[in-house]
Nucleic acid binder design. Structure first.
Length: 542
RNA sequence: GCCCCCUUAGCUCAGUAGGAUAGAGCACAGGAUUCCUAAUCCUGGUGUCAGAGGUUCGAAUCCUCUAGGGGGCACCA
């Protein structure tokens, strides 16, 4: 239903140009099925009153095939009402090839990389990581359906201080379990899982590190810890239904000389310089507050060094767009990384950073106390086990990522009967069940036919909503906002359930039943498509 | 001190690229099932869009200031 094309042509007939034709669904039914304020936007440039421009555009459009009525209203809106035959025709197209109708080609095979979660492999994933995972996965799915070639990547910070602290924490527990002692590192990881790791190590490696100093065996402890934690993280993510295409190790960036090569390139471009024994990156040249240290005066690299190399490497791997999904606490880091992109000679739009805000965990309205230092926190795994992956994801995806989220475990569970996710899934399951019944009754499903039998108000409403999916989809892709899908699905289910209650699909005269089955099939296809974007299951039975 | 994000109904949140009379769910009250799944449906009302200025035909949306909440400002990661 590309109404935009009609409008664009009509605008051109006036000798004007509309780079983007805004379309909206009017809040009031009297304003038609769809509306555009384009005349008002153009009026200024044309130096003419908005209503006059609107009248002229409307005059051109009123002859076009899809429209029953084209009206000018208010300050200069153009309101469209579709012909029934047009709606049936579009529904037929949707049914004929749902994925073609529902997945608008926007990416043209452009390669995009979405990097998300990227939690330090020093502990289990917590709920905040879960939010990033849900958003990242849904966004990736969304972009993929828009024709982008998407890679999902997890960046593993397996170099540097944090993993060393993990190693030493394990080492200390290792000694402790063996009845020896080793001072626990100041900022070590105090969670119970560290003791578990130490015990595992004793089981597999025995007591052979018993008399060692940490420095002698640091490499082994770090490698072991990282490996175990990564395994656990990957498991947790799988349990959450989130899978990555690629895991990029930070350590590998060093080992393969990529950090060095990248810094050399920057040096060649004059973007880094030596001062006071350290190597600095000229980020002020790109609007950052101050230049940033890349290599410290003791010769060791900062985190920034590998992050520079990492982004350099991503671009060199041929991605036209990089999307980073970060926790909001990293937002101060954005100007620095953008500066890197520009210093390397690429437009900063090459990188888009989406921030995901913090999650406050509640249980029955009371905040759950978490102490990172003491290693006490509620893990993603625990929440998924208690609440379920579908519900957890759905809750994450019913909020804008950049606003704080209160996640009340009790509410998420208690609501389970009236939880939004079930509301949507239930619509899907109900339709499945109608089909099962129809099959029992030997009713031919076959090709969509007799759609013009759908005359009930609820049916017309459903059809219109279905046909709006592409408009929603396009907006969600453009703005990279998967939560729009979530809201759309709730609205669609909100039209289906009343319809289901008021009208019967089966048991009507066969022609009508077949038409209604077709409508149901379309609703199911759209629900299924949307849920698959969100990574939420579409159950056949509930 | 400087910077970023947030503030919309009792609660949790939407509000699509500046558009018309600001919306859902929850909660609350009452009702619907001999019939395709009652995880459903129907009927009830709710707003100083944090506040004050500004930009314009038009602002919850853009700009400035103020208040409140969160986060960030290292040769930390």
């Amino acid at each position: 239903m590309d109404v935009r094309e009609y409008i664009r042509k009509a605008v051109q007939a006036l000798g004007a140009e509309a780079p983007f034709v805004e379309l909206e669904v009017p809040k009031v039914a009297e304003h038609g099925d769809l509306s555009t304020p384009v005349a008002m936007t153009l009026a200024r440039g044309l130096g003419r009153p908005p209503r006059a421009v609107a009248e002229e555009i409307a005059a051109v459009l009123s002859g076009e095939e899809p429209f029953e009525r084209v009206e000018v209203a208010g300050p200069g809106f153009i309101n469209f009402t579709f012909k029934r035959e047009f709606l049936y025709g579009e529904l037929g197209r949707l049914l004929k090839d749902p994925s073609r109708y529902l997945r608008k080609e926007m990416g043209k095979g452009q390669r995009l990389q979405v990097e998300f979660v990227s939690a330090n492999p020093t502990g289990p994933l917590h709920l905040g990581h879960g939010r990033g995972a849900a958003v990242g996965a849904a966004l990736s799915n969304l972009l993929q359906r828009a024709g982008y070639d998407v890679e999902r990547e997890f960046y593993v910070n397996d170099a540097g201080r944090q993993v060393r602290l993990l190693g030493e924490s394990i080492f200390s527990r290792y000694k402790e379990v063996l009845g020896l002692s080793w001072p626990f590192p100041q900022e070590g990881y105090r969670g119970e899982y560290v003791r578990g790791l130490a015990e595992t190590l004793i089981r597999t490696e025995g007591e052979r590190f018993k008399d060692s100093e940490f420095d002698e065996v640091a490499g082994e402890f770090i490698r072991f810890g990282v490996e175990q934690m990564l395994k656990e993280i990957e498991d947790d993510l799988r349990g959450f239904g989130v899978v990555f295409d690629r895991w990029q190790s930070e350590r590998a960036l060093y080992e393969e000389g990529l950090v060095q090569r990248c810094l050399d390139e920057l040096r060649g471009k004059g973007k880094v310089y030596e001062k006071e024994g350290a190597l600095w990156f000229r980020s002020t040249e790109y609007g950052d507050d101050k230049d940033r240290v890349v290599i410290k005066s003791d010769g060791s690299p900062t985190y920034f060094a590998s992050d520079i190399a990492y982004h350099w490497y991503k671009i060199h791997r041929g991605f036209q767009g990089l999307i980073n999904i970060w926790g909001a606490d990293h937002h101060g880091y954005i100007p620095r990384i953008k500066a890197v992109i520009r210093a390397l000679g690429y437009p900063e739009e090459r990188l888009r950073v989406l921030l995901v805000q913090m999650v406050t965990l509640l249980r029955g309205g009371v905040p759950v106390q978490m102490s990172k230092r003491a290693g006490e926190f509620v893990t993603l795994r625990e929440v998924v086990e208690e609440v379920g992956a579908d519900t957890t994801k759905f809750i994450f995806l019913t909020r804008r990522p950049d606003s704080h989220l209160e996640f009340d475990i009790e509410v998420a569970k208690k609501e389970s009967a009236e939880n939004p996710v079930y509301y949507v899934q239930y619509a899907h399951a109900r339709i499945q069940s109608i089909f099962a019944k129809a099959e029992e009754q030997g009713l031919e499903l076959g090709e969509a036919a007799g759609l013009d039998r759908l005359k009930e108000e609820e049916e017309i409403g459903l059809i219109k909503k279905l046909l709006l999916y592409p408009l929603m989809f396009e907006g969600a892709v453009r703005e990279m906002e998967p939560h729009r899908v979530t809201f759309y699905l709730q609205e669609l289910a909100g039209l289906f359930h009343p319809y289901y209650n008021r009208h019967r699909v089966l048991g009507e005269e066969p022609g009508l039943s077949r038409a209604r089955l077709s409508l149901c099939r379309a609703v199911m296809a759209v629900l299924g498509e949307g849920l698959s974007i969100l990574g939420v299951t579409a159950p056949k039975r509930m």
